[in-house]
Design a protein around this nucleic acid. Structure first.
Length: 149
DNA sequence: GAACTGACTGGGT
DNA sequence: AACCCAGCCAGTT
């Protein structure tokens, strides 16, 4: 393959992941991967979110058009309904963002956050962009945008 | 530039 | 129910 081809693929993957996060409710890393036709890559979805720039980062020059202010990163959790611990305050931050959207989060004695997937999970079988945007979720998205502003 | 590290998951013990 | 494991592959030592 030609030089640079690989990184181009990677860039497309990152973009696809950010655009695949559904409007409304909560979904999983694995489901995003399946929506993108790569069911074996849930970990790579996690990598994309890990590298999502924060909304406050200075991106006055080129850099990504995607950041925590316009990508609903908080809606992605693991298949068991848990928020990945990763850093010390990261999980609680995500839990706060979800509660802001009306999602009820439970915190156990171990400090692990979990979501009731039966109630809040949302696993569409087609990409949001292919399905047409869900009107009923517009105001939820506005709340998110306001939160990050 | 080889080795190691994960924002994961499903299947097997 | 809890742990283990292989597969995944871009980033980071």
């Amino acid at each position: 393959m030609a030089p640079g081809e690989r990184s181009e693929e990677v860039h497309l993957w990152y973009t696809a992941v950010y655009e695949a996060i559904p409007s409304g409710k909560v979904t999983s890393y694995g489901h995003i991967a399946r929506l993108l036709g790569k069911p074996e890559r849930p970990r790579q979805v996690g990598v994309c979110l890990k590298h999502l720039p924060s909304a406050s980062t200075d991106r006055s020059k080129k850099s990504s058009t995607f950041h925590s202010g316009n990508v609903p990163w908080q809606r992605v959790i693991n298949s068991k309904g848990g928020i990945s611990p990763r850093g010390p305050s990261a999980a609680s931050h995500q839990a706060d963002a979800l509660r802001r959207e009306g999602v009820d989060i439970r915190e156990d004695a171990m400090g692990q956050y979990t979501v009731d997937l039966a109630k809040y999970g949302w696993f569409p079988d087609v990409l949001p962009s292919e399905a047409g945007l869900v009107e009923s979720s517009d105001e939820e998205d506005e709340e998110v945008a306001a939160y990050h502003t």
